[in-house]
Nucleic acid binder design. Structure first.
Lengths: 228, 228
DNA sequence: TTTCACAATATTGTCGACAATATTAGCATT
DNA sequence: AATGCTAATATTGTCGACAATATTGTGAAA
């Protein structure tokens, strides 16, 4: 059973999830305006629930609202993605540090098992890393930090933002090149309860990925400064 | 003139700010239920604007909502404050790192000037550090990071949360013991454009403060694990 | 032709009423 | 008396209408 907070019970919950999905996957284009009336018609709900959904999207930093003007999906820029990765490095680095102390033996064993399945995939000649598997790896460490503030920041806003970028920039899918060895090192550090090293390795892992993205994107996307 | 995002233009804006003030200052007790009807009557607005305000308070992690049940002000616990400080250390450490690279010469000069006025205060025999001054110092470095994601996370949620704890635990006011030397070191690192050191020092500065709080609070406040 | 003012339109903000859900109170049964 | 069911009450969720604000379009003056 899902935890109480994750289950969509109310109409606004469902609409929020639908809207988030459509934004993340680009069905609603980045930068486009969100008309309350229009959305209410499309999603077959009243403006009130659309407004509540939009408010929550704003909390995730997926849309920006201006009073008496309306909401727009955030613009995708290289700079924006780089900023997010910088924050991610700081937070997930700390998560790895805390996980090294706070994960139980069982949780670490599970993590190693996950790593084993990933190794099988790599060994079997498939030279890619499933995105889902990568996410699973990171999720476990984030949850392993046992810090609810950290968990909610990463899971409720940053990860959806990143997914939006990945999907819309075509960086998603199975061709993601793997960093299996980096994952292995991180798990080893956690198993050794070496918090300091776990943080350093996790941060480096994320910053490598950031540099990769930067290389692929430089030139292909404007990195304009935000206009007033 | 205030930036567009800071000006409260709509009724929901104003109510949000009022409610936040009252929660942070303990006028509305931590753990207490927020009845929409009651608040609507007290603040002389409709339930719709109360609901919007509560939604925003939830984004700040100041209240928690449960579908069809209602919203409660978050509970204050030692563990909670420790968690927040851990996140703060990670984010502000990163902010200091980025500030060392991204602050302009003028901004650094201003920061040094601010440090000078603090030195005057300390030298003049007042053995305390004004809380406002401390905040001002941290704000400048956060803004100096030039990372909007980082800025919004720290300014829009973490800092209000911390202030709530400080006010309600009586840790506020002018008796805050100063860490002038630590501030000085941090500024020096930024001036030297030593990003690595700036981060280490800022993180240590915050973790010292965290340990201080922990000592003062241990025993005086329950640190129960969150129930179901 | 350009620019400014003003009217017309469209969009967001706010409200009160009703629907759906949770909580409480009372009663019957064991 | 304790437990479980049902009805009554209270609270949150949703809706459509109206108010307030922004945007657009039109026309007059320079």
């Amino acid at each position: 059973m899902l935890p109480d907070s994750e289950r969509a019970v109310t109409s606004a919950d469902k609409t929020f999830l639908l809207l988030r999905k459509d934004i993340v996957e680009g069905v609603i284009a980045s930068g486009s305006k969100l008309s309350e009336a229009e959305l209410a018609a499309n999603y077959l709900v009243s403006r009130a629930v659309i407004r509540e959904a939009i408010n929550r999207l704003e909390s995730c930093h997926l849309v920006e609202r201006k009073a008496n003007v309306g909401a727009r999906v955030v613009n995708i820029t290289t700079d924006g993605l780089m900023e997010i990765y910088q924050v991610r490095a700081a937070l997930e680095g700390m998560a790895a540090r805390l996980a090294a102390t706070n994960m139980t033996g069982d949780e670490i064993a599970d993590l190693k098992k996950l790593l084993g399945t990933h190794f099988q995939i790599v060994k079997n000649g498939e030279n890619y890393y499933q995105e889902a598997g990568d996410l699973d790896f990171h999720y476990r460490i984030i949850l392993g930090s046992k810090n609810n503030q950290l968990i909610s920041m990463l899971m409720e806003s940053i990860y959806h933002l990143i997914r939006m970028y990945r999907v819309q920039l075509g960086m998603s899918g199975p061709r993601v090149t793997m960093a299996f060895d980096e994952h292995k090192q991180i798990v080893q550090a956690i198993e050794n309860r070496d918090a300091e090293l776990a943080e350093i390795l996790m941060r480096r892992h994320i910053m490598y990925s950031r540099d990769n993205l930067h290389k692929k994107l430089s030139g292909s996307l404007n990195s304009e400064a935000k206009a007033g």
